[in-house]
């Protein structure tokens, strides 16, 4: 048996002298998430302000859909739209966990001390009290999603008439699929569609809402997966369309008539 006296700073507990005793790479997850987030934000910001290469024939980038063109608006039309998915993701219950850990370090990981002075107020004060508006962003994001499905369907039609199936159209449909899984697995929607009820068997309407709630719950169990897949799919879909617009890539038409 050997002894080791712990050296503690004022206010620190002798039983917990270090920021953590964890030996695993607890910093790996927040560091990875921060890197991916920053990369996405840089790419999306560049694409918004590029204000070019977003439409080729019937292929429209998800960053610019629905395309809002007004005489009075002199800037990129993407600015008029992207605040909706950005707001939806920023107030999303999964992403909140991810960026609170990665950027605010409250906490950086479980059982790891936070960094900096303690002014923590959670989601009770400005600006984080606005996280409570998540359901409003859900309504708007669901609306945008309708336009994205419409864009995917329109991409099957050739501008000069006739139809075609291309790899790019499949990518656009896949993007809509991932975005739908993410949007309709949302915690706020899970509450609105049935979670707010205390009794699911009380009437026919409640039973129907229970069925919807059950389905949404299945999606919600994998909300993190849907969140990441849809983030990547929307960026890759935009990138593919950009490359088609610049002529660097082809939509790869599989068949047409």
């Amino acid at each position: 048996m050997t002894e080791a006296q712990t050296e503690t700073k004022p206010g620190q507990r002798p039983s917990h002298p270090d920021i953590t005793q964890r030996k695993d790479a607890w910093w790996g997850e927040p560091a990875t998430i921060a890197t991916v987030f920053i990369s996405f934000i840089i790419y999306a910001t560049y694409r918004v302000f590029e204000n070019n290469y977003f439409e080729s024939g019937n292929f429209l980038s998800p960053f610019y859909s629905p395309k809002l063109v007004f005489d009075w608006w002199k800037f990129s039309p993407a600015i008029l739209i992207l605040w909706i998915p950005a707001g939806f993701r920023t107030t999303c219950y999964y992403y909140r966990k991810a960026y609170y850990r990665s950027f605010f370090m409250t906490p950086p990981a479980c059982a790891v001390d936070p960094y900096g002075k303690d002014g923590y107020t959670g989601e009770t004060k400005f600006p984080f009290v606005f996280q409570n508006l998540h359901r409003y962003f859900f309504y708007l994001a669901a609306l945008v999603l309708i336009f994205l499905w419409y864009d995917a369907v329109v991409s099957l039609f050739k501008p000069e008439g006739g139809m075609q199936l291309s790899v790019l159209s499949i990518v656009m449909f896949a993007n809509c699929f991932f975005l739908s899984g993410y949007t309709f697995g949302c915690h706020a929607y899970r509450h609105l569609c049935g979670g707010s009820l205390d009794c699911f068997s009380s009437c026919t309407k409640a039973k129907t809402r229970f069925k919807v709630w059950e389905f949404v719950t299945k999606l919600n169990e994998h909300h993190m997966g849907w969140a990441w897949f849809s983030l990547f799919s929307v960026a890759l879909t935009d990138l593919y369309i950009r490359q088609v617009c610049t002529g660097a890539a082809s939509p790869i038409v599989l068949f047409q008539f």
Binding site: Y100, C110, A111, G122, E123, T124, H187, N220, E221
Partner: peptide, 24 residues
Amino acid sequence: GHIGYCNITKCCTEVCPEEIHITD
């Protein structure tokens, strides 16, 4: 109870030995 202090970082769920989905 100040539920607003919870910033849903899910550590409670990660450590629960009964695997209760506390946060979700």
